[in-house]
Design a protein around this nucleic acid. Structure first.
Length: 334
DNA sequence: AAAATGGGCAACCGCGTCTGA
DNA sequence: GTCAGACGCGGTTGCCCATTT
């Protein structure tokens, strides 16, 4: 016995949304909110759409302050680092990127970032015939373990890690650090958790994009430090094993790996720091000011369904941002 | 110029999780 | 404690447009 469909598929409209439908949905939600029931929403509005479709349209396109296209290098770094660490948890990754949706991040990864990163593997192929290579081609690894046992996501993470490692660290194998890795607990984590937007507690901490860039950079330090851990754990998790944690750390390695990630992403041009952690110039030379507290506060404002909602932020209807981060943090012990 | 191919993106689908009765 | 309905997420599909042959 299958699950009951959420709507009458015979009567709902599918396919691209028309401007009229967009306008109807947008104006209704801006005026009344969602009412906490997406399924009932299209009936109230008079739209011949599935409730889930309305929700998706609102979240991915109509919501205020949605950013489309032109991912910044900082965002690239966050996406890559997090993907390597946690895999395709797009909602969590998107939660770290204000204005980005999980669908956007997912599409961006699948169509661009992944190719940019994995596409470079050929450059190093003649040096190494890695386990990931073997796995990717369906070959067996040295110990005879069929690589097909790993998920595609895990394989990608391993490929990325091994590519990073193969570029410069072939003579300096990195220690495993998972899951209790606390590599940069003295700097990156502390500053990240004390300053960033994810510890929203109602206080109106105003954080500029420039600061956000630095925060992302801090995060990237952390995430990059977990590259190895992520790959090892991905393999372990996929095999139902628990990787043993290690306390080993080497800040030089972390910095090197971060640089390698930048190199993989942006093609080897040595980064003097102007790329990461700098202000995001909107093109006009003026650094944007983003009040993160306001951003995250939209949930509350919208939830009150005031007659004139001030849609400053746009992460309503998504999990509490710090919850998402805490989810990540609790899993990865940071 | 036309056809084939590939890339990018919006939208859909199905399933796991959550929530309230 | 159970169950049904709703939500949220990740994977996949399909369409449109650009590029290549």
């Amino acid at each position: 016995m299958g699950r009951a469909p959420c709507c009458d598929k015979a009567t709902v409209k599918k396919g691209p949304w028309s401007p009229e439908e967009d306008a109807m949905l947008k104006s209704y939600i801006e005026e009344h909110g969602t009412g906490g029931n997406w399924i009932a929403l299209p009936h109230k509005i008079g739209l011949k759409r599935c409730g889930k479709s309305c929700r998706l349209r609102w979240l991915n396109y109509l919501r205020p302050n949605i950013k489309h296209g032109d991912f910044t290098p900082e965002e690239d770094g966050v996406i890559c680092s997090l993907y390597i660490s946690i895999g395709s948890r797009w909602s969590i990754i998107a939660a770290q990127l204000p204005g980005r949706t999980d669908n956007d991040v997912k599409n961006y990864w699948n169509t661009k970032l992944k190719k940019r990163l994995l596409g470079r593997r050929k450059d190093h192929r003649h040096h190494h015939h890695s386990a990931a290579d073997a796995a990717a081609t369906g070959e067996s690894t040295n110990d005879g373990e069929p690589a097909a046992a790993l998920s595609a996501s895990a394989m990608e993470r391993i490929q990325l890690c091994m590519q990073l490692q193969s570029t410069h660290h072939q003579h300096h194998p990195l220690p495993l650090m998972w899951p209790g890795c606390n590599v940069v607990s003295g700097s990156g984590v502390a500053s990240t958790q004390s300053n960033n937007s994810f510890n929203s507690n109602g206080s109106s901490s105003s954080v500029t994009v420039a600061e956000q860039g630095q925060l992302m950079n801090d995060q990237q330090h952390l995430m990059t430090a977990q590259l190895e851990a992520g790959a090892a754990a991905a393999a372990a998790i996929d095999n139902g094993l628990a990787a043993s944690p290690s306390s080993a750390e080497n800040s030089n390695i972390i910095v090197s790996m971060e640089a390698e990630l930048q190199e993989l992403l942006y093609g080897g041009a040595a980064d003097d720091g102007s790329r990461g952690g700098k202000a995001v110039d909107g093109g006009g030379g003026v650094v944007q000011q983003v009040d993160v507290a306001e951003w995250w506060s939209y949930d509350d404002q919208q939830g009150k369904s005031s007659s004139s909602p001030v849609a400053v932020g746009c992460w309503d209807f998504t999990p509490e941002p710090n919850t998402a981060f805490l989810d990540y943090a609790s899993v990865y012990d940071i």
